[in-house]
Amino acid sequence: MCLAIPARISQLLDNHLATAEYNGNGMTVEMGLVEAEVGDYVLIHAGCAIERIDPAMAADIFEILKELGA
């Protein structure tokens, strides 16, 4: 029920949309459930950002992802 990835907002678009980037993959996502700026990291599930990732704690997540070769 919970496949989601942490991605960086690279551009804000019209109509509550944004471009987000995850390890070289860019996609258009819905931003209506979060407040985020370009450069922020958000959790994306089924094409929607469902939560903003706390930057102070984000380092942990990316450490784990790096460890796993992602």
Partner: peptide
């Protein structure tokens, strides 16, 4: 598992789509 090569971008795409 650690020895099986997958490009990071491809692995990331797989995570996006499950």
């Amino acid at each position: 598992e650690a020895a099986i090569p997958v490009r990071p971008e491809t692995r990331a795409l797989c995570e996006v789509l499950g």
